[in-house]
Amino acid sequence: MTVMTRRDLLAAAGATVAGTMEARAQTTTDKTLIGAAKPKNLIYGAALATWQTDRDATLRRTFDRQCSTVVPEWEMKWGTIEATRGTRNYGAADRVVSFGASHGLTCRGHAAIWHRNLPKWVDAAMRDEGISVLATHISDLMTHYKGKIKSWDIVNEAIEPKDSQANSLRNSAFLQRLGPDYIGRAFTLAAEADPSIQGFYNEYGLYHNDSTDQARRTAVLALLEKLKSSGVPIYGLGIQGHLAMGRPFDASVFSTFLRQVANLGLKILITELDIDDRSLTQTVSERDRLVGERATKFLTAALSERAVEGVVTWGLSDKYSWLNNSVYQKRSDGTMNRCLPYDENFQTKPFWYSLYYAFKSAPLR
């Protein structure tokens, strides 16, 4: 038996993306991403918004065929559920859960606590009433979805080294009004409302090999160590995976970070993967090839770590990516950002094959 080394796997995967894509496409037309992931006990899913699935049958069919889980882009965030205090509207969020159930998909909860998309009334309420405001929201959210959602992003993006706060915490309304312990309290409150949940701390900027992401990796690892040592009921780390082609990536650096997190006894999930190609000026096909190569390197490193439970991309098709629907994120040349597994016409790209073969090559969980 020939044993492939990690270097062999990376080289083989890269060759798949760069050199044999068309040939492989002829033999994988009946294959699916979840079909590659499930035998390894890995999940694959994607984010959506209800307005997308309402109008696009192709998107619905693609979720049905390719995914095992679905994540709401905005529907479960506090500002959507309770824009007016005391009036909690779960209608849009419930539709995501129902969509998942009707297609045999589990649903992840995203996100209980986030400094953005925060109702305007929350800051003043926390100033006057403290942690009880947070407790009411988290308890109601977890109770509403008890038995329906197991995996939850409890706290999202609480680290920001540039804010120059102690322990590199983000200078958010939560930190200002509740102090640094709000993070641990949020996990405890969630577990009290539903002891069966898997609570994740979710963060971006943990993967590029530069000083900015290194500072965030260091701060996140310190936060996780503190939460674990304090007995906080945290299940895992969500690593968003918003990769940028204009920034460096080193698989060995990323793998070391993953092992450090796993050594804390935490699980890991890639929660919002996409690849921003705005720095690339090549032809579309060349951009696709380069994005596929970056995806292969990232996914091979991620899925080689057995604590990683799966991958969620932040959408399925370029047509609906936030990178193509925000005036601040669009490419300057007017073309689509080729950032997701499917293009705007739901044709597979090298990114899709990177996912497929990374799942196929991953060790069994």
Rank of each mutant, 00 (worst) to 15 (best):
M142W: 06
A124Q: 13
I131A: 14
K150M: 08
V155F: 04
D123S: 14
A135P: 00
S151W: 06
S139A: 08
I131L: 14
E160M: 12
V155P: 00
H115K: 05
N156I: 05
T143H: 08
E160Q: 12
G130V: 12
S132R: 09
K148C: 07
L134C: 03
W121E: 10
E160H: 15
G147T: 08
Y145H: 06
D153Q: 03
P119R: 11
R127G: 04
D128F: 09
R116H: 09
I149R: 05
R116E: 13
S151N: 14
M142T: 10
M142D: 10
T143A: 08
W121A: 14
N117V: 12
A135K: 04
H115D: 11
A124K: 15
H115T: 08
H144L: 06
I131D: 07
A135R: 08
G147H: 09
N156R: 02
P119T: 10
A158F: 06
M126C: 05
D140E: 11
S139G: 10
D153M: 01
H137E: 00
L118A: 02
D153L: 02
I138A: 01
V133T: 09
E157M: 11
V133A: 04
T143R: 10
D140Y: 00
I149M: 06
N117L: 13
A135V: 00
I149W: 04
K148M: 09
S151M: 07
P119A: 10
I159E: 13
S139N: 04
W121K: 12
S151R: 07
I131R: 10
I159A: 14
W121V: 15
K120Q: 14
D140Q: 06
P119H: 11
Y145K: 07
K148G: 11
K120A: 15
D140M: 02
E160R: 11
V122A: 10
I154W: 00
M142I: 10
G130R: 07
K148N: 08
Y145L: 08
A124S: 15
M126R: 00
E157Y: 10
N117Q: 15
H137Q: 01
A125T: 09
W121N: 15
R116M: 10
D140R: 02
D153H: 00
D123R: 14
T136W: 02
N117K: 13
S151Q: 09
S132W: 01
E160C: 14
L118Y: 00
I138F: 01
S132D: 09
E160K: 14
W152P: 03
